[in-house]
Amino acid sequence: MHETTRQAARQRRRRRRLLVGTTTGVIVTGLLVCLVMTMQPDRKEDAGQATATAVTNAQETLPSASPGHEPSSASPSPSATSATPSASGTLAKASPPRSAAASKVSPRKAPVTTSLAGRIRPKVTYPGVATVYKAGVGDGACSYGPSSDMMIAAMNTTDYETSRACGAYIRVRAANGASVTVRITNECPLPCAPGQLDLSEQAFAKLAPVSTGRLAITWSLLSPDAVGTISIRYKTGSSPYWCGIQAIGHRNPLARLEVRTSGGWRQLARTDYNYFLSPDGSGCGGAIRLTDIYGEQLTVNGIAVRPDVVQPTRVQFARH
C-alpha cells in the first residue's frame, strides 16, 4: 500500500516537472517570436537606408559627361558647382544643369582671338574721339618719310603700343554717317587718350569741317584690298655689324620681324620709331621673315644692306 502511494507521488512530481518545462519552453518560444516580430521592421528600415546610401554614392561617382552633353537624370554632384578656371584665367562658377530641351542645343563656341595682335584687334569696334593736326608732308613717328597719300592719322600713345600700330589701316566712322580710311603713320602723345585718333586735316575733312576740331567717332582695323607689295628699308648707319630693318606697305599690322642666322631664325626687337634692331649685326643682309597679326609668314630674300634705300619685294599679306 505504502509502496503504491510512493510510486504515485513520484509520477505526479515527474508530470509537474514536465508541465513546468513545457510551459517554460512555450513562454521562451513566445518571447523569441515577439522579439523577432519587434525587430523585423527595424531591419527593413535599415535595408532601405543602405540602399539610398548606395544610390547616392553611385551618383557621385558617375563618369563625367562628354563635352557639350550633361547627365539627363542624375542629380549634380557637389563638384558640379565648384569653381573652375575660365578662359581668362579667373575662377568662374560652373553653370547648373540645363533642362532636357536646353541640353539638346549645341554649346556656343568661344570667340577666337588673335594671339599675335596687340591692343588693336580685328573685328573689334573701338569708341573714341577724332582730333585734327597739320600733317605737313605726312612723315611721323613711324619713320615712313613723306607720303603722297594724306589719308593718314596719328594713334594715341596707349594704342600706338611701341609702334605696333604703325602701318595699320583704320576705318573711322562719325555719328553723321561719314567715314574715312586712314593709315597710321604717327603717334599722338599724351594727353591723347586711349581710343583717340589725331587725323590729318585732309582726313578729318571727310568727316566734318576742320573747324569742328573734335568729333566723337568709332573705329576699327581694316585689311584693305587695293595695296601694292611690301618694301624693306635698312636704317641709316646699318652695316653687317649693326642694322635696323623696317617693313613698309604691309596690308596687315606687323607682329614680328626675324632674320636668318647660322643658328636659325632670330626675332629682332622693335623700337618706338618702327625699326627692328640687330645690335650685333647677326642676320643683317640675309633672309628676312615677316609675320602679321593673323600669323601669316612671308620670307624675303636678296635684300642687301643699303641704308635708307626703299627696296621693293614681290610679296604681300593676304586680305582678311
Rank of each mutant, 00 (worst) to 15 (best):
residue 42 D to E: 15
residue 52 A to H: 11
residue 106 S to Y: 07
residue 158 T to A: 05
residue 1 M to I: 05
residue 246 Q to G: 06
residue 197 L to N: 06
residue 146 P to D: 04
residue 162 T to L: 03
residue 218 T to E: 09
residue 114 T to L: 07
residue 96 P to G: 12
residue 183 R to P: 00
residue 43 R to H: 13
residue 11 Q to C: 13
residue 148 S to A: 13
residue 257 L to M: 14
residue 123 K to C: 13
residue 281 G to R: 02
residue 114 T to P: 07
residue 38 T to R: 13
residue 270 R to S: 01
residue 206 K to D: 00
residue 10 R to E: 09
residue 14 R to N: 13
residue 200 S to Q: 08
residue 166 C to H: 02
residue 152 I to S: 02
residue 99 S to R: 08
residue 138 G to C: 02
residue 165 A to P: 07
residue 169 Y to I: 06
residue 310 V to N: 10
residue 148 S to R: 04
residue 116 L to Q: 05
residue 254 L to D: 05
residue 96 P to S: 14
residue 173 R to F: 03
residue 68 G to N: 11
residue 230 I to L: 04
residue 15 R to Y: 06
residue 237 G to N: 05
residue 241 Y to T: 15
residue 190 L to M: 12
residue 241 Y to F: 08
residue 98 R to S: 12
residue 106 S to A: 15
residue 221 L to A: 10
residue 82 S to Y: 08
residue 181 T to S: 11
residue 261 T to F: 12
residue 236 T to K: 03
residue 125 T to F: 07
residue 266 R to F: 01
residue 105 V to G: 06
residue 112 V to S: 15
residue 22 T to F: 10
residue 110 A to R: 08
residue 85 P to N: 12
residue 264 G to L: 02
residue 14 R to C: 12
residue 275 Y to D: 03
residue 42 D to I: 13
residue 189 P to Y: 01
residue 70 E to W: 14
residue 138 G to N: 03
residue 291 T to Q: 09
residue 151 M to P: 01
residue 154 A to Y: 09
residue 248 I to P: 04
residue 260 R to Y: 10
residue 272 D to K: 03
residue 39 M to G: 13
residue 216 A to G: 11
residue 77 S to W: 08
residue 299 T to R: 04
residue 79 S to A: 07
residue 249 G to M: 03
residue 19 L to M: 13
residue 22 T to R: 14
residue 99 S to V: 11
